[in-house]
Design a binder for these strands. Structure first.
Length: 473
DNA sequence: CTGGGGAAGGGGCCC
DNA sequence: TGGGCCCCTTCCCCA
C-alpha cells in the first residue's frame, strides 16, 4: 500500500478546503498535480479491474472468482508479495490464489480498499475484515480495524474525549492515505464508526468504568500514554471483552498477567464491601459481557494464518490470534489461547467457585487446594505418605501435616479430616456422562466431608458450565 | 526490603 | 480435535 500511503502524504500537505487551481504556490500545484495524477491512476486501475481489462491475476474466494492486477496486489499485500515472488528468479508465474478462510464479501471489502482506498467497515464485518487483512498481511487495514474497534469499544468516560480525538485523528491520518476523492468521502464519515455505535458504546463505557479496577485504569492510561503501541491497543480490546463478574468471564489476559491472584482478590474483596458498587459492577459487566460475546461469536473459524517459509520454500502455516501477535501451529491451541483474551472461564471449581480457562488448571487447583494431594507436610515441608500425612481441613482448603507437626500444634487446634484414610468414595470428577474419573486417583481423593460440604454448599463435582460447547468433565 | 514457596496461567507438544 | 502433561513465567504471600 505504499502507493496509497504516498497519496495520503500528498493529500496531507494540501490546505483543507482548497482546490488545486486556487493555490498560487508552485509546490502546492505540484503536489496537486501529483495527487490528481495518482488518484486518476488508481481510478483507472479500478476501472480496468471492473472491466477485467489487463487483469492478470485470479483470486478464488470460496468459489467466487475475483480478477485483479498482480502488480496492484503485490504492492498492497504482504501475502500476495510472498505468493507472487516464490519463483527461483524472484517472480512466480502462479497468478492464481484460492482462499477459504474468509468470505467473498470480506474479500470484496479488501479489494475495494486496495483499488479505491475506501474501507467499508461496519460493526458486523470488522472482525472478519481484520482477520482477512491479517491473513493477507495488510498492516494498514489491520490498524484501521483496530482503530475502528477501539473507537467502538471506548472503555471509559475519563478517556472518552481523548480517545475520540485519538481515534478520529488516527482515522483521518489513515484514510487520508487513500485517493483524493476517497479522502473527501471518508472525511465526511463514510468509514468512521457509525454515530449510533458511538452513542451506544459511550453510554456503556460510562458504566463500564465503574467496574474497572486500578489495573484496568492503568491499562487505559497506558493506551493514552502510548496510543500507537499495538500492545496498548490490544490491551484495551482485551479488557473490554471480558467480564470479571460474569460466570464465564473473569479477569483476562494482561490483567491476570500483572496481578495474578492478588489484584483479583483485592478486586473481589472491595466488591464485597460495597453492595451498591457490586450492583453497578454487575450491571456494567453484564453489558460488557454481551459485547464480548458478540465479538467472540463473530470470530471466524480461522482467525488468521501467516505463512513462513522453511528451507524447502514450503510455507509453514500458523494460526494468528486476532487480538495479539501470537501465532500457534494448531487451531485448537489458538482456541485455547483466545480464552485469555475473551476472559472465558468455562471450568468452575465447585468447592470455591473459582473459575479456570482449562480443565487441567481446574484439576490441578482442585487437587492442590481441596484434595491435599501434595505429600508434603505444610508446616515442616517434610515428605509424608498417605498414611503419615494427616489431612487437615481449613475451610475448603486441605493440606497434609506430619504426625510431629500435628502433635506440636495440638490436635484441638486443627480440624482433622474425619474420613481421612478411609476407602470411601472419593470426591468426584465427573465426565460428560457422569462417568467417574477418580478411580485411579482414589487414594488421593478426599472423601466426602461435612466441613467441605458446608463450605462449598455442594459436592465436590468438577464440571463445565452448560453454556460452553466443550465437554463436561 | 527481600527471597523463597505456592498458586495460577499460558505455550508447546504428545497421545 | 481435545485431553493431558510438562515446563516456564508471573505474581502474591509470608517469614
Amino acid at each position: 500500500m505504499d502507493m496509497v500511503a504516498d497519496l495520503g502524504a500528498s493529500r496531507l500537505y494540501r490546505a483543507p478546503g482548497e482546490s488545486s487551481h486556487q493555490q498560487p504556490q508552485r509546490w502546492f500545484n505540484t503536489a496537486d498535480i501529483t495527487v490528481a495524477h495518482q488518484s486518476n491512476l488508481l481510478k483507472q486501475l479500478n476501472q480496468q479491474r471492473r472491466q477485467e481489462l489487463f487483469c492478470d491475476c485470479s483470486v478464488l474466494v470460496e468459489g467466487q472468482l475475483f480478477r485483479a492486477h498482480r502488480n496492484v496486489l503485490f504492492a498492497s499485500s504482504g501475502y500476495f508479495r510472498m505468493l507472487l515472488s516464490q519463483g527461483p528468479d524472484g517472480l512466480s508465474d502462479a497468478a492464481n490464489a484460492t482462499f477459504d478462510v474468509f468470505s467473498p464479501e470480506t474479500f470484496t471489502v479488501i479489494l475495494d480498499f486496495i483499488y479505491s482506498g475506501q474501507l467499508d467497515l461496519s460493526s458486523h464485518n470488522v472482525i472478519e475484515v481484520m482477520s482477512a487483512a491479517s491473513y493477507l498481511q495488510m498492516n494498514n487495514v489491520i490498524n484501521y480495524c483496530k482503530n475502528f474497534i477501539k473507537s467502538s469499544l471506548d472503555i471509559s468516560v475519563k478517556d472518552e474525549d481523548s480517545d475520540r480525538c485519538l481515534s478520529l485523528s488516527e482515522t483521518c491520518s489513515f484514510t487520508s492515505g487513500a485517493g483524493e476523492e476517497t479522502t473527501e468521502q471518508q472525511q465526511q464519515g463514510s468509514v468512521s464508526p457509525p454515530p449510533a455505535l458511538w452513542t451506544r458504546d459511550n453510554s456503556r463505557s460510562q458504566s463500564s468504568f465503574i467496574g474497572k479496577d486500578s489495573d484496568q485504569e492503568a491499562s487505559a492510561s497506558a493506551l493514552k500514554t502510548n496510543p500507537s503501541s499495538p500492545a496498548a491497543e490490544v490491551k484495551i480490546e482485551k479488557e473490554d471483552l471480558q467480564d470479571p463478574q460474569d460466570p464465564l468471564y473473569t479477569l483476562p489476559g494482561s490483567e491476570r498477567r500483572r496481578g495474578r491472584g492478588g489484584s483479583k482478590r483485592r478486586a473481589t474483596n472491595s466488591a464485597r464491601t460495597n453492595q451498591h458498587e457490586d450492583l453497578d459492577i454487575q450491571e456494567a459487566r453484564t453489558q460488557k459481557a454481551e459485547k464480548a460475546e458478540e465479538l467472540y461469536a463473530t470470530l471466524p473459524p480461522i482467525v488468521g494464518v501467516i505463512g513462513h517459509f522453511n528451507k524447502g520454500s514450503n510455507p509453514i502455516m500458523r494460526f494468528k490470534c486476532p487480538f495479539c501477535t501470537h501465532t500457534v501451529k494448531r487451531k485448537a491451541d489458538l482456541k485455547r489461547h483466545l480464552r485469555c483474551h475473551t476472559g472465558e472461564r468455562p471450568y468452575p471449581c465447585q468447592a470455591c467457585n473459582k473459575r479456570f480457562t482449562r480443565l487441567e488448571h481446574l484439576r490441578s487447583h482442585f487437587e492442590t487446594i481441596h484434595q491435599a494431594r501434595k505429600l508434603v507436610c505444610r508446616k515442616c515441608k517434610c515428605q509424608v505418605t498417605e498414611d503419615t500425612g494427616h489431612v487437615v481441613c481449613e475451610g475448603t482448603r486441605r493440606y497434609r501435616m506430619c504426625t510431629a507437626c500435628i502433635q506440636e500444634v495440638g490436635c484441638d487446634d486443627i480440624p482433622m479430616d474425619s474420613l481421612e484414610g478411609t476407602n470411601e468414595e472419593p470426591a468426584l470428577l465427573l465426565g460428560v456422562d457422569g462417568e467417574e474419573e477418580g478411580d485411579t486417583k482414589r487414594s488421593w481423593m478426599v472423601t466426602d466431608d461435612d466441613d467441605l460440604a458446608e463450605d462449598s454448599g455442594a459436592d465436590l463435582i468438577i464440571q463445565q458450565v452448560d453454556d460452553s460447547d466443550e465437554e463436561l468433565q
